[in-house]
Design a protein around this nucleic acid. Sequence first.
DNA 1: TTGACAAACGCAACTAAGTTGCATTAAGAT
DNA 2: ATCTTAATGCAACTTAGTTGCGTTTGTCAA
Lengths: 138, 138
Amino acid sequence: MANCLDQLKRDGAKMTKTRRLLVELFERCRLPLSETEIRQALAARGRPVNKTTVYRELAALIARGLVQQVDFGDRKLRFELAGHHHHLVCTGCRKVQDIHVRHDTGRIERLAKAQKHFIIRRHSLEFFGLCQACAKDA
Amino acid sequence: MANCLDQLKRDGAKMTKTRRLLVELFERCRLPLSETEIRQALAARGRPVNKTTVYRELAALIARGLVQQVDFGDRKLRFELAGHHHHLVCTGCRKVQDIHVRHDTGRIERLAKAQKHFIIRRHSLEFFGLCQACAKDA
DNA sequence: TTGACAAACGCAACTAAGTTGCATTAAGAT
DNA sequence: ATCTTAATGCAACTTAGTTGCGTTTGTCAA
């Protein structure tokens, strides 16, 4: 992760306060964040930024492969440190947890190739349901 | 599927031309459609409708369990006949194909319950990559 | 067949998320 | 210290979806 900041530097990027804070934020929190959440977090740390800046910063980090987009179907983009994760999304309180899942994508990739001549590059797998607290209420 | 139209009737719904065409469209096409695509298709069949109507109609069908939402992460809602599907989404031409996948959700559900006290209700699993035509170009 | 009632509809105005163009500010190298 | 260029803010815009309200149209019963 630190080498990614190095990479940024190498191709002419500047080490701004915003960029440092943003990477820090992702590393500490390790969960998908929306643009709004990111701006709130940065503002709370004394760095209020425009939403345009957030999107541009994210685009830069995504282009370098540091950050990736996640998608929970609420038509809101979310972002997290790159790496293959899956999540448990609570439909009650919207809280998100990581979950480790071993699953055999190879089989499906071969199937798609053989039957549909389709080359799978990536997949998304997300789980929706109720967290402990919300299950109690229901 | 026909019994779903019956069900609609039973609780006071009217059999409008739009509704008939819409259900027909879903049954014939069997792939996730966006609001825009739906309106184009209806217009092509001589029934131009307002987007508000489309969304309301979809809400009614979803409420009855006839239709479900799908999500390909392009912050656009899509809709298809209810039932558990997975898709191959071409990132080149955006074409979508169904794919049949057997996979063991039971294991993961038990895991989520045991480790995180999380009750999984549903999941989404979508594959992104290149279809035959687009793979050639790349 | 007709008339009444509720569902369906269209329209216009609105919200929320994300994007773009342009002028200004500020890293950081020389 | 200065200069170059990345980073930033702002305002205006786009796209997807929602809401309120007045009008139209199925449907059912008389």
